[in-house]
Amino acid sequence: MEGLKVSKANLVVYIHPSKSRQVSNAVLRELSSMLFAYNEIFDGIVLAYDVNSFDKCARILPGIYPYFGVKLKVNMLLFSPKPDMLLEGKVVKLTHESIHVVVLGFASAVITEKDIRKEFVYRTKHGQDVYASKSHKRHVIKVGTMIRFSVKSFDEEILHIYGSLVPDNTGSIHWLDKNLEVVSLSDRSTKKRENEGQPLMSEKDAIDGEPSSFDTVQKLKHSKKQKVRQES
């Protein structure tokens, strides 16, 4: 899935003097407070972190409360969805106007009716609401389906994603992984058959008086026959 990246960061965590005997716990507590929230510095949502090292020689900051700063080297896993990226999520609700999805278990996404390609039709099947494809009867989206969709925009404050199912490479992940390559090969085969069925001489050639490949072959054959007769 796109939108995930690992960022290496050099940080300074400020610790209250009362925590000076438990520096490691205090540092981890500060880092944990950053989880599952959008961070402007990293331009993404912090999902996880891994502390590589921290400087034991902390620098004391002057002030009423003399906090001290601990330098860290941290690897951070970030989630930063951008327009046109492909994300994956689980469908949790379907209506005639929209599909509601949860991404990575915490971020919500919505795909409205105008952003669902015309191939999908909302209907009730076996007592369950679904979006079913008119082109491929086994391509069905329902509650519980894992889908792949394109990002239109992302609201950083409420961690809400606006998505789209317009691109052909979006829809049920299970169906796409099994059939997308087959459909692509079928399309290429159809185009090949169409190209093979084209006339040997185009209308433009006929108008311009240019010989077609068929005419050229016939002339070559006729020339060879004459040469054989002359030699004999």
Rank of each mutant, 00 (worst) to 15 (best):
L94Y: 09
D177V: 14
S24A: 10
S223Q: 15
L176H: 07
Q230A: 10
A206T: 04
I45G: 00
A48L: 09
V74L: 10
V13W: 03
V91E: 10
Q218R: 10
T145C: 02
H136I: 11
D177C: 12
K82A: 01
R29H: 08
M85I: 04
T190M: 09
V92D: 11
K118Y: 07
E231L: 13
L159C: 01
K225H: 12
M1T: 06
S20I: 11
Y67C: 02
R138T: 13
I173E: 11
D55H: 04
Q198D: 04
L78Q: 04
L4P: 01
P81N: 00
S33V: 01
G3H: 00
D155W: 08
G44M: 05
H222E: 15
V140Q: 02
M76R: 02
E113A: 13
E210R: 06
D205N: 06
V228Q: 13
Q198M: 10
L87Q: 04
H96W: 11
S189N: 02
G69A: 08
I45L: 01
A107T: 12
K142C: 12
K221N: 12
A26C: 00
E210H: 06
V143K: 13
D50P: 07
L11F: 08
Q218V: 14
L165I: 05
A58V: 12
L61C: 05
R29Q: 10
I45S: 00
H126I: 13
Q226F: 14
K152M: 03
N195M: 14
V151E: 05
N10K: 07
S223I: 15
I173S: 06
E119L: 05
H16S: 02
V151I: 08
F120V: 07
V121G: 04
Q230C: 06
Y38W: 04
A109F: 12
P83M: 00
S232A: 10
V102E: 14
H136K: 04
G89H: 04
P62D: 14
A26L: 02
F36H: 07
G197W: 03
I60E: 14
S20H: 01
S153Y: 01
K19I: 01
H139D: 12
L61T: 11
I173H: 02
H174K: 13
S153E: 06
N169H: 14
E30Y: 00
D177P: 07
G105N: 04
K225S: 12
I147L: 07
F42E: 12
A206N: 04
S213D: 14
I141P: 01
A132M: 14
E30T: 00
S32W: 10
F154W: 06
L176D: 13
G144S: 05
R188V: 06
F214I: 08
R117Y: 00
S232E: 15
V102Y: 11
F68V: 06
I41Y: 08
S153N: 01
P167T: 07
S153V: 01
R21G: 02
E2Y: 05
W175L: 09
V182A: 10
L220H: 12
T145L: 03
A37T: 08
H96K: 12
K191M: 04
L159I: 09
K56A: 07
I45K: 00
E203I: 08
D168F: 13
N10C: 06
K90I: 15
A58H: 09
Y122M: 08
I207V: 09
F42W: 13
Q198N: 03
V151H: 00
Y162C: 05
G3A: 03
